[in-house]
Structure formats: structure tokens, C-alpha cells
Design a protein around this nucleic acid. Structure first.
Length: 258
DNA sequence: GCGACAG
DNA sequence: ATCTTGTCGC
């Protein structure tokens, strides 16, 4: 019951190591060098959303927004069935295939709307083996990608310690950040206070074809709220565009006595 | 040894 | 990831 998982994980680890070699940690686009990102017109976001008791069926969502105004240019949502289980550290094998399909579809129907950078819900290089979902999608699509996680993954000495909490408390204003350094000293990501109204940071890391500093700066400019608009709109738009098993219904409020 | 562990 | 309910403040 638990045994077959081990071989799969070994196979996945080898695959991650192989794909890791293709990750580009540099700014490969002209707009990335510009102080105000001039030349950047389209930013994308991808996400999978689930319904309560079901962890194999999901809605794969892709949105493309204008930059810098964050107006919707394109949105696509499709119900998919996932083949791989959720295992922390191997999100890519579960979520990348349907998201790549969505990108492929966009390329076929509206190639002119292909995003110049993609925001991914999850980590990039800030990962056990420096190959999170954002790297996985980046390498396989060859699109610049930024990983933005809402929760801290415990990577090589980076943990939710009192030290970490005090660093969070020191983030005074939107745009402030601190590096996430492993025991060996390598900075794999940054915790960013992305909005004025939220003290809880997001964890930004390189997915592909972008530097960490550019990724953090770009993420900040795409945030109206804590979560960058491309990802936030993917999440919220999934309702109403995907088929839900049951329509909303009124529940009897049994706790009210009459 | 046990638990922690993106979505 | 997803569920739930109220509460607080601008």
C-alpha cells in the first residue's frame, strides 16, 4: 500500500535532477532589465482548484492580464483528472501536465496573447532539490516563470522559527523582503511583504529565465492584495467557469431554535 | 526515532 | 488544495 510510492519517488527525483540542469536563473528578456519593466505587456497566472472531498478532479485555470493595469485579456478553465498523488516536493508531476495543456491551447487559439511571464502558485528554486513547480513549468514551457508560495516550505534549515517570525515582523512596508538562505548559505528565495494590508508574506523564488531580484520586484508590482493578481484572478475566476458537481443550495440552519 | 512538509 | 462562521475595521 505504501511501498509502490517509494519507487515512484525515486523516479521523480531522477527526473527533477535531469530537468534542474535546464533552469535559467538569469534575466533573459529586455523588459526584465528595465527599471519600470517597459516592454512588458502581458503577465499570466496558473492555478488548479479543487472541490472539497475530491483530490483527483480539478479545474485547471490560466489567465493572461495586461501589464501594468491587470485587465483580463484571456481566461481559460478546464476540468481535468490528475494522475499523480500530492506529495510535498513533487507538485510538478501532479499539476504541470494540465497547466502545460492550457498553455498549449492558448498557443493554438491566440498565440498573440501568450504571456511574457507566468506566475505560478507554488515554489521555484525554493525547494528541497531546487526544482519546484515553477521551475517544472518553466523548463517544460520555456517561459519565464516566477514561483509564489503562500506558505513556507521547510527547506534546508529554513523553518518557521522564532527567528523567521521576527524577520517577518521587521517587514514594515509593502515591498520589504528578506532572503531565504539555506544552511549552506545559498539564497533560494525571498519572503516578500506584498501588500500594505497583509503582514503575512509570500515566498517568491525563481522559476525560469528570471533573477530572484527581478522576480521579487515584478511580483510586488503585480500585487493589489497579498497574492499577485495573475494568480489571484485564476483562483477566483475558477468559480463560475468550471462545472461544479452541485449547485449552491440553502442549508437548514439547525442551530437556530424557534 | 518522530515530526515537519508548496498545492 | 478544500470545508466552516463570525468578527473587525476602513
Amino acid at each position: 500500500m505504501a511501498a509502490p510510492e517509494a519507487e515512484l519517488v525515486l523516479k521523480w527525483e531522477r527526473e527533477q535532477a535531469r530537468l534542474r540542469e535546464s533552469v535559467k536563473e538569469e534575466d533573459t528578456e529586455d523588459w526584465q532589465r528595465s527599471p519600470d519593466f517597459s516592454g512588458l505587456k502581458r503577465v499570466g497566472g496558473v492555478d488548479l482548484s479543487f472541490i472539497k472531498g475530491d483530490d483527483i478532479n480539478a479545474c485547471a485555470h490560466l489567465v493572461v492580464l495586461t501589464y501594468p493595469h491587470m485587465k483580463v485579456l484571456y481566461e481559460d478553465c478546464k476540468m481535468v483528472t490528475l494522475n499523480a498523488p500530492y506529495v510535498a516536493g513533487f507538485l510538478g508531476f501532479r499539476e504541470a501536465p494540465p497547466l502545460l495543456q492550457a498553455l498549449e491551447k492558448l498557443k493554438n487559439v491566440q498565440p498573440n496573447l501568450m504571456p511574457q511571464v507566468l506566475f505560478v502558485d507554488g515554489n521555484g528554486l525554493f525547494h528541497y532539490r531546487e526544482f519546484g513547480l515553477a521551475c517544472h513549468l518553466g523548463v517544460l514551457s520555456d517561459l519565464p516563470c516566477v514561483g509564489v508560495a503562500k506558505n513556507l516550505l521547510h527547506v534546508e534549515g529554513v523553518v518557521r522559527s522564532e527567528e523567521h517570525q521576527s524577520q517577518i515582523n521587521a517587514l514594515q512596508k509593502s515591498g520589504d523582503s528578506f532572503p531565504l538562505a539555506t544552511t549552506s548559505g545559498r539564497v533560494l528565495g525571498k519572503a516578500l511583504r506584498s501588500s500594505h494590508s497583509s503582514i503575512k508574506p509570500v515566498y517568491v523564488s525563481v522559476g525560469h529565465r528570471i533573477t530572484l531580484d527581478t522576480a521579487v520586484r515584478l511580483t510586488h508590482t503585480c500585487c493589489l492584495y497579498r497574492v499577485p493578481e495573475p494568480i489571484r484572478q485564476s483562483v477566483s475566476k475558477s468559480e463560475g467557469h468550471c462545472s461544479h458537481p452541485d449547485p449552491v443550495r440553502i442549508q437548514p440552519r439547525w442551530w437556530i431554535s424557534t
